[in-house]
Design a protein around this nucleic acid. Structure first.
Length: 462
DNA sequence: AGACCCTTGCA
DNA sequence: GCAAGGGTC
């Protein structure tokens, strides 16, 4: 029997824990399709690192699918709008009767999906659009049936729903009998850092389980220290969907039970809830997809246009060691520790008073794990323009943050080698004489004055 | 998911 | 001097 069901994979590049793949296979043999839309991703400022990881994941996915006699089509398109022709065309060529996918919530993605659904309908091809790829895929709503605008109550309700709906991850698809045609040419990217971010599915699963076994219990204690490998390092895989949300949940629950801990108290799970929160917000508030702030009044903030200050931030030459180390980590590795994302974002939006959208775009252009909803949510949180954001007067003191979260300057020294000779005492804010001796940038702003200016820029809005 | 400043209470 | 606690930005 040849395949009749087509599953369209987007940012859910995996076979296991995949509801569309599982459901589709109940109705017949399946084939898979991925649409490459590099022009669109470029418009979304997505990084080359993420693009390269996606290619690697598609390569290994292809092999994995092949071993189950499942075809994977890779369509080389430019923009989202090309999908509305390409998908129905693929269906008629191979006589697929029904197309499946998991919805995506940001505006461009939702429009793309609507257009494809419409085109399929016109071509008399059935289409099954499933809920988004979240731990709790159903909308989490308050008592007025509206979206939550504050995380904590969202989280409480989210947990309740999660407990009601608890289910195991969807199993991998079964092997099919028909032999398949394979029209995919391996990308085999030349300089992909496979050691940092393996694209092999076995290795990725191991990363998840090893984290849950060894680190998850200490996550709350360790996650704020950039010199400590205390975070999961799974974000690139979550962003592209190489691991599924229920896979994460299952690992948390299993390991918690082994260690006699309450899985509901997992702090890492709470972070995953933030992911659901920001993604669901995208669906409720289309403005978020249009470079608009959640708090409309913050449209009036008079941001600083200085290209010089912005460049200094991008390059890690602000003269604030922790900020510079963080930006250099981003530029050199395509990844930045979460605590540092908050510090650098607060620095850009508050102390430099530069538009959060410039930081948001720069992060996307460098991050291997760049994910629109989480990145936008994080930036709007830092800039105090967002939903349940930091209050406008909350300005991170980069020196204080550095002292608290990198006390020995261990992380700083890793990425700002010129500071290696300095002691733990002086590294967070070296004296002017020390700076000139070792050739390290003077601070590009005066902290106290900048803090005042930032607070009053927001107070002017009242 | 903060920081700062000014108390108070103690040495 | 100073830690700890509270109000304010």
């Amino acid at each position: 029997m040849s395949a009749t069901q087509l599953v369209w994979l987007r940012n859910d590049l995996r076979l296991a824990d995949h509801p569309a793949i599982y459901e589709a296979q109940q109705q017949g043999d399946i084939a898979l399709v991925v649409c490459l839309t590099p022009g669109q991703w470029q418009e979304h400022n997505e990084s080359e690192a993420k693009f390269a990881l996606r290619e690697q994941l598609i390569d290994t996915l292809f092999l994995q699918a092949k071993s189950l006699n499942i075809s994977l089509h890779v369509l080389h398109l430019k923009r989202f709008s090309d999908c509305a022709k390409a998908i129905p065309a693929l269906c008629s060529e191979h006589h697929y009767q029904q197309v499946w996918w998991q919805n995506e919530l940001p505006v461009h993605e939702a429009q793309r999906d609507d257009k494809v659904a419409q085109a399929l309908e016109e071509g008399k091809i059935a289409c099954q659009r499933l809920a988004p790829d979240l731990i709790v895929p159903t909308p989490v709503l308050n008592q007025q049936n509206g979206p939550f605008k504050v995380f904590t109550p969202f989280y409480k309700r989210w947990l309740q729903i999660l407990i009601q709906q608890l289910s195991s991850p969807y199993p991998e698809p079964k092997a099919q009998s028909e032999s398949i045609h394979s029209d995919h040419q391996s990308f085999r990217s030349k300089d992909f850092r496979d050691d940092l971010w393996p694209a092999d599915y076995q290795a990725i699963r191991e990363k998840l389980w090893r984290f849950c076994h060894n680190k998850e219990a200490q996550y709350d204690e360790d996650r704020d220290f950039p010199a400590v490998p205390g975070t999961s390092l799974l974000s690139p895989y979550l962003a592209l969907g190489a691991i599924g949300p229920r896979d994460c949940l299952e690992a948390i629950m299993y390991v918690s039970q082994q260690n006699n801990r309450d899985w509901q108290a997992s702090v890492w799970l709470k972070e995953l809830a933030w992911r659901d929160f920001y993604k669901q917000l995208m669906g409720h508030f289309p403005d978020l997809s249009k470079s608009l702030p959640f708090k409309p009044e913050t449209q009036q903030v008079r941001w600083n246009d200085s290209e010089q200050l912005f460049q200094a931030w991008c390059e890690g030459k602000t003269g604030f060691p922790i900020v510079d180390a963080a930006m250099r980590q981003l530029n050199q590795t395509g990844w930045m520790h979460n605590r540092l994302r908050m510090i650098t974002a607060s620095f850009l939006t508050k102390l430099l008073l530069i538009d959060w959208r410039k930081g948001e775009a720069y992060f996307m252009s460098k991050l291997i794990d760049g994910e629109f909803a989480a990145n936008n949510g994080g930036w709007q949180w830092s800039a105090s323009t967002g939903c349940d954001a930091a209050p406008y007067f909350r300005v991170f003191n980069p020196t204080r943050q550095s002292e608290r979260f990198d006390p020995d300057g261990e992380f700083i020294k890793r990425f700002v080698p010129e500071l290696k000779p300095l002691s733990a005492k002086e590294i967070h804010d070296p004296a002017p004489s020390v700076r000139s001796k070792i050739g390290y940038q003077a601070p590009i702003i005066d902290y106290k004055a900048a803090r005042k200016k930032a607070i009053s820029a927001f107070e002017d809005l009242k």
